[in-house]
């Protein structure tokens, strides 16, 4: 799977970008040239040798804040995706096996979560549990989880009726055995696609939440927070939102690209795609190189 994704140009681009961003998240706080929280008199400065991306309204170095904020932004969206995966995928798989009551119950919960107005719910929960990045991400993860629930349930249903699962049942296999041995490998590719997508969505959500002041609290920097504060000073420094906005955009785009690549290489579609490339290449070759024994008729 990994090798096939890397064989696609789009897959390679996506993985490279995501690796760079992961590196940024890992090393960002150390790379920051200045203290991201240190204010100075030099507010709203333009780009200069000392401040590559200028300073914000409190005179803080924007580059340092971007780098320092990358960790929490990336971790936040990862957290969203993983929470959604655990909360969604496991009940999704089990809903096929644990009987009708469980199935009905989880299906209704999934429906309810989809129906809830997202931001209002997030604000309500934060009002209840207190404001913090972990709470915010947990709530977001739970709200996104129906996607995983549905994806994994659909994939499991497709496997559950297959003869090899019945053969295992006839040999006396337990549900745990069947899920571990047969179901898991079939559910993984669609879940991987959903995961890549959710990380992308997670970025937007974390950013928009911090933009609204939910989750991460100032002065702690995040990409979304930077975007928010920069927007307030648009008239003074119209170019300021570009850097954080670009970072968010590129990351989301890379995640979607990866999701597409995974979808393209898994299953029938993947094989058809590979064949198509090959046939086209062969035809081009045949057209380019004049055949010495061309007169086959």
């Amino acid at each position: 799977m990994v090798r096939r994704v890397l064989a696609l140009t789009s897959g390679r681009i996506a993985v490279t970008i995501l690796a760079l961003i992961a590196l940024l998240a890992l090393l960002g706080p150390w790379l920051a040239p200045q203290n991201p929280l240190a204010t100075s008199d030099n507010a709203l400065a333009a780009t200069s040798g000392a401040h590559w991306l200028g300073t914000d309204y409190l005179g803080r170095d924007v580059l340092s804040r971007l780098l320092d904020g990358s960790r929490i932004s990336v971790l936040g969206s990862l957290e969203v995706a993983l929470v959604a995966l655990v909360v969604g995928a496991i009940p999704g798989i089990l809903s096929v096996y644990l009987g009708r009551a469980f199935e009905w119950f989880t299906l209704r919960i999934a429906d309810t979560l989809v129906a809830l107005p997202f931001l209002l719910f997030a604000i309500a929960v934060i009002a209840l549990l207190g404001n913090g990045i972990t709470q915010a991400m947990l709530v977001t993860g739970v709200l996104v989880s129906p996607l995983f629930y549905r994806v994994s349930r659909a994939a499991t249903l497709a496997v559950a009726r297959s003869p090899y699962v019945e053969a295992a049942i006839v040999s006396g296999a337990s549900i745990g055995w069947i899920v571990r041995r047969h179901v898991w490998t079939k559910v993984l590719p669609p879940i991987a696609v959903a995961l890549a997508q959710t990380i992308g969505v997670g970025f937007v959500i974390v950013s928009s939440l911090t933009f609204l002041g939910i989750g991460v609290q100032p002065p702690e920097p995040t990409w979304g927070g930077l975007l928010a504060s920069d927007l307030g000073y648009l008239s003074h420094r119209p170019w300021a939102p570009v850097a954080p906005a670009l970072l968010i955009m590129v990351t989301v785009w890379a995640c979607n690209l990866l999701a597409d690549a995974i979808r393209d290489v898994s299953g029938e579609a993947g094989r058809a795609l590979a064949n198509d490339h090959k046939a086209r290449a062969n035809r081009r070759e045949a057209a380019a190189g004049p055949h010495p024994a061309g007169g086959s008729r």
Binding site: S162, P163, Y164, E166, A167, S171, G172, H182
Partner: peptide, 30 residues
């Protein structure tokens, strides 16, 4: 069933073996 007294062979040989398991894994499963 675990005692293995009775076994079943399905009609469709294409789908009665898990496509992701090797032949050895399928054979040893019971």
């Amino acid at each position: 069933r675990r005692r293995g007294v009775i076994q079943y062979v399905f009609q469709d040989p294409l789908r009665s073996l898990d496509p992701d398991l090797t032949i050895e894994e399928s054979l040893t499963e019971p």
